[in-house]
Design a protein around this nucleic acid. Structure first.
Lengths: 334, 334
DNA sequence: CTGAAAGCGCTTACAG
DNA sequence: CTGAAAGCGCTTACAG
């Protein structure tokens, strides 16, 4: 048994202090960026002691003492949505550059799950809680009222909740697609939109309807933001081959599903069906280079959110709106 | 100014104790699952006080006191790899079910970045550190020696590091593909494999070579695990249309890139180029339903890893190997 | 430049 | 069933 168990508890600031013959205050100063207030030789001996012990300051002790953590909780409504995933990835990178850690969790669009995760975030004393697709619940409202560290992404906070928002102008984007359809003289307009209950998808739909205007009626289907959903309604449409539909999809995933339904029925896109997506996630370049869609700059979201997080705790101008630009990317499908 | 600032610090156990007229010990018992040791009426008044104050126990105070946290740090080598993303998603879900939080961070295959994140994980006193694709560094070895909370996924720990591993038998999977190619009488074998430095991709390649055996020479390209990499070497191959290549790709992303290169050159798959991927990420069903590939059960990884995390701290049988099954999914491309 | 001391929010053995 | 007290690992105002 010459080998010591290797799960002993990690060394503390006290161990380092003892090892280097200084007080814990000095060790603390060395590790808290206040090393300029420590004599060079002292610094060196602390550094050596810490290294030999394998000491890393406890973020837990530090957080308790400072009454703030460096953890940011990010709630996503789905782990299969590429746009959401890209936003999370860019956010992780931006947070890391600021010395913050990202806790990621999936609400699965379930109100109870969201509320449980909100409680967890409270328990962690998260520096900020980023909601990509919040669901309006009493718990959410209570937190929004009590704290000012909530940030809404993609879906605007429900009326009555005052909190910063990062996203695009969904109405304007939907409008742009509608206008484009009209300009191209498409007929038989269809919108396979996301759940109406979410402000973002409603705004997209409303914008699209406004953009179509008097050019014609719009057939509407409410779908989850998934390939499965798009496939389902795409199949419905593809069954009727007597007319060419011009389909506006609530996001790219829905568009993928519609496309698959169309190709399974041997329909040519865009000759026999016009499809427009939303988000232009990174995958399109490779796997769906045919998809006309609205480009939302997912990778600009992370830095924008991270900047907000740095500011929010102090400046309580919590009704900030960061509206990022979108653009219509014209490819073959529309 | 009738509205109070809403960023005041959160209530503590002491506030709840005062509000409900009991000691903090009792409040603690109520919230620590030991509520059976608290009288019903007392419980009720604590519950009421906590609710009216909006109290959530501090995970920080709790972690400090118990000398353990409920945070699991997950390091991924890339945020654009769908297999990795799926594993993380299934892990998050499995961890959440056990009351653990997942901190996600991206090493970008950068040794320094990985080591910085390992330090962060130490600072957070993470319950476990899950490495999806570890890079062999001195820091990693040091941590592996000092702690026993490291878990390797996909890439086996480098020789000398003793830690549990969750993954598939990459050699056997590569071998299966090689055999399949031979059985189909393919010629002109090509392997666009991942970086040799990673145990997983090396094993896949070695297995493939063994599976091909004497059936022919194998042209080899080392590529990053990305669509860009696959596209690059696919373009190279597609330039020579005089023969049909049978291409084994290190992962699905590489295969997508090869496929795009082939189609851009008007090559028919599999008639003019045979392609086999690796991972069978969830996307294939929708966007690449033509891709023959090795299916790795990404969504079984999360539960397996989470179980290991629950066990590891106590049982130090740290050389566990969880080898999950793979299967060859035959579709059109090979 | 350095140290002693207080205290951040919890849990739990101990005593009642 | 309940409470007083110690202590987990830190930081920082204060005094030197």
């Amino acid at each position: 048994m010459s080998k010591a168990g290797n799960s002993q508890k990690p060394p503390t600031i006290r161990d380092v202090a003892r090892e280097s013959g200084v007080s814990i205050a000095t060790v603390s100063r060395f590790f808290s960026g206040k090393s300029s207030a420590v004599a060079p030789e002292t610094s060196e001996s602390v550094r050596r002691a810490a290294e030999s012990l394998g000491y890393t300051p406890s973020e837990i002790g530090r957080s308790l003492r400072l009454a703030r953590s460096r953890v940011v909780v990010v709630l996503v409504p789905s782990s299969t949505n590429h746009f959401t995933t890209d936003v999370s990835a860019s956010l992780e990178s931006a947070l890391n550059a600021k010395g913050l850690s990202m806790v990621l969790a999936n609400t699965e669009e379930d109100p109870d799950k969201q509320d449980g995760l909100l409680s967890d975030a409270q328990g962690l004393r998260a520096k900020a809680v980023v909601l990509q697709g919040a669901i309006d619940t009493p718990k959410l409202r209570e937190m929004a009222a009590r704290q000012n560290n909530l940030i809404f992404v993609n879906r605007q906070p429900a009326p009555g909740i005052v909190a910063p928002y990062v996203g695009i102008d969904n109405f304007a984007a939907g409008f742009a697609v509608g206008r484009y359809f009209v300009q191209r003289d498409y007929q038989n307009f269809v919108a396979i939109h996301g759940p109406r209950q979410y402000a973002g998808s409603s705004a997209r739909l409303d914008g699209f309807l406004a953009g179509i205007g008097e050019a014609g009626p719009v057939m509407r289907f409410e779908s989850p933001f998934s390939m499965e959903g798009g496939y389902r309604y795409g199949t419905l449409l593809a069954a009727n081959m007597s007319q060419r539909y011009a389909v506006f999809c609530g996001n790219d995933e829905i568009a993928y599903g519609v496309y698959r339904a169309a190709t399974e029925r041997q329909l040519q896109v865009p000759d026999q069906m016009v499809i427009c997506g939303f988000d232009d996630n990174r995958l399109n370049e490779w796997l769906a280079p045919w998809l006309t869609t609205v480009k939302v700059p997912a990778f600009d979201f992370g830095p924008a959110i991270a900047d907000l997080i740095e500011k929010v705790p102090t400046a309580t101008k919590s009704c900030d709106r960061f509206i990022l630009p979108f653009s219509l990317i014209q490819r073959q499908s529309a």
